[in-house]
Design a protein around this nucleic acid. Structure first.
Lengths: 327, 327
DNA sequence: CGAATGTGTGAGAACGATACCACATCATTC
DNA sequence: GAATGATGTGGTATCGTTCTCACACATTCG
C-alpha cells in the first residue's frame, strides 16, 4: 500500500503539504497541487482510514443495530438509511440482534470501540438497561420505532394509524372486531397499538371481548395460530385487526383454509405493507408506514446531530392508509 | 475514552503487559492479570479499533457489496453472511450499488481504504473492469452468484435448476413453453438460464418461438409487461417459465387479470422463493436456491481464504425444487 | 522604512495500539 | 556453580495520518 509518505517523496514535497492539499486546509501552491495530484492518480493512493480515524476520531462509519435484516420492514428502512448515508459519504456497519435483547445493549459499546461516528438503533424495546447504555454513549444515538426517553427518536404513528384503521373498519360496518397483537416487550407495537384498538372500540361503545384478543410473535405461523385461537370463541367476530402484515398473512391463511369468504364473512386489516401484499388475495387493507422514508428521516436527524449536538428531538413519522379489498 | 495507557497506569504495569494480557501472547503473572482485569472492568475499557488496525492491518470488518438490500434474495443472503461473520467475530460493512456497475467497481478500492479484511461481492455481471479490480485487490474477494474468472466464487446452479424445472414442466404435459428472462448483462441469470431453457426444449424437440420469449428487469411490473407481450403472440403458449420470482408474480398478475385459470389454462414456474410466495394463489412452482445457506457458504469460504490464501475455488450451490400448484 | 499581512513549506509531536528486544529473576540441570 | 530455559516486565520503534508551529519570502500599508 502506498502511504502519504510515498506521495510526498514522489511529488517532492513534505507529508504536511500533501495532507494540506488533501484536506483543503492551509496553503498549497498551484505547482505543488498538480504534482501531488499527478502522483496520486498514478499510484491510486487512498488514505488509510485507520490512520485517519486514529488521528481525527472520526471514521465516516455509522453503526446500525437492527433485529433482523431479512424482514421486509428492516431491509426497507436500511435502504433508506443507506441512501442518506451514501449522499453524505458515510458507510454503514450493520449488526443484527436476532431479537436478543442482550445483544441490543452489547452492540452499543462494541460499535463505539469501532469508533463509529453515530448509531442508528431500530429498537424493539425500551428497557432501562438499554436506555442507560444509550445515555452513556459518547456518540449520538438515534432511535427508530420506539419512544425512548431522552433520546432523539422517530416513532411510527402507532396510535393514530391504528385508530384510523379501526375507525375505518367501524365505518365499513364491522361491529365485532377482534385483535391480534404481540407481547408488551415491544411497547410501540405491543402496547400502543393495542391501546388504540381498545380506545377506539370504547369510544364507539363496541364490545371488547377477551376471547377476541390473541397474540403472536411477528411470524406468519403465529398469526395463523392466533386467528385459530380467536375463531374458537363462542361468538365469532366479524373482523380482525392484526398489528403486523406478516401475522395478517398467517391469519388470512387460516381463514381461507376454513372456507371463510373475505371480506364477506370476515374483514381483515393490518399495518405494514410488504412488496407482495398487493398480490395476495384479497389485497390487504393496511397502513403504510413508509419505511424507506422513515430510514431516511432518522438518518438525516443523525446527520444533524453529528454537526451540532443539540437537544434531543422527538418526531412522529407519517403514514398512509391503503384501502385494499379485504374490508 | 480510556486508553491502554490509563489501564497500565491504574494497574501499575506497563502498556506492554496490558497488551500481552489482552492478546494472550507472552507471559503475564497471575497477579498482574487480576489487577489488569479489575481495572478494565471498572473503566469499561475497550481497545481502540482504529489504533489496533493501524498497527496490525486487520480490522475485523468484512465489506459486502450488493445491488440492493431491500430485495428478499439479497437480504436473505446477508442474513447468512451475518450469521457466519458473527460466529467468527467479524463485522460487516454494507454497500449498495443500486445496480450501478461503476459503483460495483469503485467500492472495491474504497473498501480497501477502509482496510476491510475481505470482500464479499454479490455480483450481477462479469465485466472485465470488475474482474480486473478484483485481481488487483490486496485482500481476498469472494463472489456469489456469477462465475467470475480466477476468483473464488459460488454460483447458483442456474443451468441445472432451470433444466430440472423445464423438464418437470414437460413431464407435466406442457408443450408450448414460453420464457421470461432478463438482459445478458447478468450472465448467470440472463445467459445461463436462457440457455438451459433452450437446450431443454431442443432436447425434447419442442418448438422454440421468438414470440414466446420476452424480457424484464427483475421487477414485478416488468414481469407483467413481458407476459403481456408474450400473450400477444398469434399462437398462445400453454406455460411460462420466468427466471425470477418477482417477475413471475407480475406475470401471474397479468394472467389472472385476463381471466386465465392457473394452472388449467396456463402453467407457470419460476426460480427463487420469497417468504410470501407460499401465500399467493396458486402457489408458485419454483426453485429454492436457499439464499441464507449460500450466504453462509460464501462467507465460510472467505474465512478460509483469510487464514490461508490458497488457490481459488469454484463451488456450485445446491437447490431444491418446490412443487407449488401452479403447474 | 518597518510592521503587518498573505502565501507557502517542512519538522515533529501526537493519536492508541502492537511487537520486538533487552533485561531481570528464578528454578532446573549437568 | 555455571549454564540453560522458563517466566515476567518495561522501553521503544512503528503503523499512516493530522495538526500545530516555526519560519521564509512577498506584498501591502501607514
Amino acid at each position: 500500500m502506498t502511504t502519504i509518505n510515498d506521495i510526498a517523496k514522489l511529488a517532492n514535497v513534505s507529508r504536511s503539504t500533501v495532507s494540506r492539499h488533501l484536506n483543503k486546509n492551509g496553503y498549497v501552491s498551484q505547482d505543488a497541487q498538480v504534482r501531488i495530484d499527478k502522483v496520486i492518480k498514478e499510484t491510486g493512493y487512498l488514505p488509510s482510514q485507520s490512520a485517519q480515524s486514529l488521528r481525527t476520531k472520526k471514521t465516516g462509519v455509522i453503526g446500525v443495530i437492527l433485529p433482523k435484516i431479512s424482514t421486509e420492514t428492516a431491509s426497507r428502512v436500511v435502504e433508506g438509511i443507506n441512501q442518506v448515508l451514501q449522499e453524505n459519504n458515510y458507510q454503514m456497519l450493520l449488526t443484527q440482534t436476532l431479537l436478543n435483547k442482550e445483544k441490543e445493549i452489547e452492540f452499543i459499546p462494541l460499535l463505539q470501540a469501532r469508533h463509529v461516528d453515530g448509531i442508528i438503533l431500530l429498537a424493539t424495546n425500551t428497557d432501562d438497561a438499554l436506555v442507560n447504555e444509550i445515555k452513556k454513549a459518547k456518540v449520538p444515538v438515534v432511535v427508530l420505532g420506539q419512544d425512548m426517553p431522552e433520546t432523539t427518536s422517530i416513532q411510527y404513528p402507532d396510535y393514530d394509524a391504528t385508530k384510523n384503521m379501526v375507525n375505518y373498519m367501524i365505518e365499513q360496518g364491522y361491529r365485532r372486531i377482534s385483535f391480534i397483537g404481540v407481547p408488551e416487550d415491544d411497547p410501540a407495537v405491543g402496547i400502543t397499538r393495542k391501546k388504540a384498538y381498545l380506545d377506539t372500540l370504547k369510544e364507539h361503545q363496541l364490545p371488547v371481548k377477551k376471547e377476541w384478543i390473541a397474540y403472536g410473535d411477528f411470524s406468519i405461523p403465529s398469526g395463523y395460530e392466533a386467528m385459530k385461537t380467536i375463531m374458537g370463541a363462542k361468538q365469532k367476530p366479524d373482523a380482525v385487526f392484526v398489528v403486523t402484515d406478516n401475522m395478517a398473512v398467517g391469519a388470512m391463511q387460516y381463514l381461507k383454509e376454513n372456507n371463510l369468504q373475505l371480506p364477506q364473512d370476515m374483514g381483515i386489516a393490518t399495518t405494514g405493507v410488504s412488496r407482495l401484499s398487493k398480490y395476495i388475495e384479497p389485497i390487504l387493507a393496511t397502513i403504510d408506514f413508509q419505511n424507506e422514508q422513515a430510514g431516511m428521516a432518522i438518518t438525516k436527524l443523525l446527520m444533524e446531530q453529528l454537526v451540532k449536538t443539540d437537544k434531543t428531538k422527538k418526531i412522529t413519522h407519517t403514514y398512509r392508509r391503503l384501502p385494499g379489498n379485504s374490508l
